[in-house]
């Protein structure tokens, strides 16, 4: 019986898989994104027991009941969490230069929105007031990055 080929060390194989995707937003998230793109407005939904939820889902995550009325919230808010990214990874992170992942509780909302602060990072602290920086009219495409980032205003 011959022996299997010897190797100095276990081998490895590289693999890369890529597939294109196209996701339907559905009526609720679709309307939220349309508000960003077409109105530069941020819409939430009132949900029983939770207040105003942004972004809206169309249902309560607590008991799966249908969400209530649409409510416009401010594009200003308060940071509730901050995580600085000093060395962003190209094509993976939402900014090529150092930025902060933040949670923003928009005025009029009861939930915090995950987004980024990309300038004056030393002022990005919990409790800081921030203002949405909107993308130009011809750049907005109906995504959360129609708000390019938030900037600290005090």
């Amino acid at each position: 019986m011959t022996q299997a080929a010897p190797t100095a060390a276990p081998l490895s194989q590289r693999q890369k898989m890529e597939f294109p995707y196209k996701h339907s937003t559905g009526p609720t998230i679709g309307r939220f994104y349309a508000g960003l793109k077409e109105q530069k407005k941020i819409w939430g939904q009132r949900v029983a027991g939770q207040g105003v939820v942004v972004p809206p889902l169309g249902y309560s995550e607590i008991d799966a009941s249908e969400a209530g009325e649409w409510v416009e919230v401010s594009d200003r808010g308060t940071l509730t969490a901050v995580a600085l990214v000093h060395h962003p990874i190209a094509d993976l992170h939402p900014s090529a230069k150092p930025f902060a992942f933040v949670l923003v509780k928009l005025d009029g909302a009861d939930t915090a929105l995950a987004h980024i602060v990309s300038d004056n990072l030393d002022t990005a602290k919990v409790g800081a007031r921030v203002q949405a920086v909107w993308a130009a009219d011809d750049k907005r495409s109906g995504t959360l990055r129609d708000i390019e980032s938030f900037r600290v205003v005090g």
Binding site: H23, S24, G26, P27, T28, I29, G58, Y59, A64
Partner: peptide
């Protein structure tokens, strides 16, 4: 073929 009127959550709901 395509339920473009709903997202995945809407479809399962």
């Amino acid at each position: 073929t395509r339920r473009s009127d709903v997202n995945i959550a809407g479809l399962v709901r």
